[in-house]
Amino acid sequence: MRRLLAAVLGAALLFGVAPAAIAFPDRPIRLIVPYGPGGITDITARIIAPALGDQLGQQVVVDNRPGGAAMLGFGMTARAPADGHTLVLATTALAANPVLFRDIPYDARRDFTPVSLVGLVPMVLVVPRNAPANSIAEFVALAKRRDGQMNYGSAGNGSGNHLTTEMFMHAAGIRATHVPYRGGGQVMTDLVAGRVEFVFAVLPTARPFILDGSLRALAVTGRTRSDAVPSVPTVAETVLPGFALYEWLGLLGPAGLPEPVLARLHQAAVAAVRDPAIAERLKGIGVEAQGSDPATLATHLDSELRRWDDLAKHVRFEVAQ
C-alpha cells in the first residue's frame, strides 16, 4: 500500500498535479454568502448550491457570514486553504469596497481565484406612487431643479442601492442626499411611505410593490427591458444612451487554487448555472444567468475595480474605518 501511495504521489508531482487535487472534492464544500439570509445573494446561492453539488458529487453547504459590508465573508474566503473546499458568492461590493473603506482585510485582485461569473442583476428606479415625476426624464429634470435637495434610500453604505444610485447620478449630472439604512426591508417600507424619495432596487425586491401600485417604476438599468416588468423602459432608451449597470454575482475561491481543482469547479459551475431549470429559477428572481470561464470573471472584476476607482475621483463617498 505504501508503494502504491508513493507511486501515485510521484506521478502527481511528475505531471504537476498537487496531491490534494487528485481526489477533489473529498468532503462537503462551503459556499460563503457574505450577507444574511433572504437577500438576492443568499437566494441565488441556495438555488445553485444543490446543482453545483450534483456536478461535484459532494454537498455544497451555504454558509451565511454577514458583516462589515460583506468584508467578513470575503476575508474568511481569502484566508481559507486553497484546496477548493471554500468558495464565496461575491457581489459588486468586492469591487466597490476599496473606495468605501480604508482598512480591508484582503486584496480583491491578489487574494482570490475567479471561478465563474454566475449572474447579472439589473436594478429598477422606483419612487412613491404619488411622486411628481411620471417618467425617468421628468425625474432627472426634477432632480436638477432641486439640486441636492432630494434624498434616496439604500440598504447601507456600500450596498448595491447606494452604488448604483451614485453611478447613475454621476452619469446624469444630478445630486441627491444619501439616507443609509441597516438592510433593504426598512428602506422599501419608508419609500412606500414617502419618507425617502427614490431607490434603485433589485427587481425581485421592488416588483411586488410595483405590481400592487405602491411604487412607480421609472426605468431599469439593464441593456434591455426586463421580462419581470416589460412596460418599464431602460435608462439607455430614455435619458442616457449606452447606460447599463448591473449588480453582479461571481463564484471565487482563495488565491492559488490548483489548476485541476479550478478546472473542476469551473466546469461544475457552468453546468449548474446554465442548466435550463436553474437558469429559469434565477430568471424568476431577476438574475440573468451567466456561467463564464475564470478569465472572463477576472476581466470583469478588474474592470469593476477600475470603474469604482474612477467614480471615486468624481464622487465624494462616505469613507469608513
Results as ranks from 00 to 15, higher is better:
Leu89Asp: 04
Ala69Phe: 12
Pro25Thr: 02
Gln59Cys: 05
Arg79Val: 00
Leu52Lys: 04
Ile29Trp: 06
Ala90Asn: 07
Pro25Asn: 09
Pro81Val: 00
Gln59Ala: 15
Ile22Asn: 10
Thr41Glu: 06
Ile47Lys: 02
Ala21Lys: 01
Ala78Lys: 00
Pro37Phe: 09
Thr91His: 12
Leu56Glu: 05
Leu56Ser: 06
Ala78Asp: 00
Ala95Cys: 07
Ile48Asp: 09
Ala80Val: 05
Leu52Ala: 04
Gln59Tyr: 09
Ala23Tyr: 07
Gly39Met: 06
Ala78Thr: 00
Ala95Leu: 02
Ile47Tyr: 05
Pro28Cys: 11
Ala21Leu: 08
Phe74Asp: 07
Val62Cys: 14
Thr86Met: 07
Arg27Lys: 10
Phe74Gln: 07
Arg79Glu: 09
Gly57Thr: 07
Ile22Glu: 11
Phe24Val: 00
Thr91Pro: 11
Thr91Phe: 13
Gly38Glu: 10
Leu94Gln: 00
Ile43Phe: 03
Gly68Glu: 14
His85Gln: 05
Ala21Trp: 06
Asn64Ala: 05
Gln55Thr: 03
Val88Thr: 14
Thr77Trp: 14
Gly36Asp: 13
Ile22Ala: 12
Arg27Asn: 01
Asp54Lys: 01
Gly75Gln: 11
Ala69Trp: 05
Ala69Val: 12
Asp63Trp: 15
Met76Phe: 05
Met71Asp: 12
Ala20Gln: 14
Leu72Gly: 02
Pro25Trp: 04
Leu52Glu: 03
Thr41Ser: 10
Arg65Ser: 12
Asp26Met: 01
Thr92Lys: 03
Ala20Trp: 08
Pro25Ser: 05
Ala78Ser: 03
Leu31Thr: 11
Ile47Phe: 05
Pro81Phe: 01
Gly57Ile: 11
Ala70Ile: 03
Met76Tyr: 06
Asp26Tyr: 01
Asp83His: 03
Thr41His: 06
Arg30Ser: 15
Gly75Ala: 14
Pro25Ala: 08
Gln59Glu: 15
Ala90Gln: 06
Leu87Tyr: 15
Val61Pro: 13
Pro37Tyr: 07
Arg27Cys: 05
Ala95Glu: 07
Ala78Ile: 00
Ala20Thr: 13
Ala20Asp: 14
Val88His: 13
Ile47Thr: 08
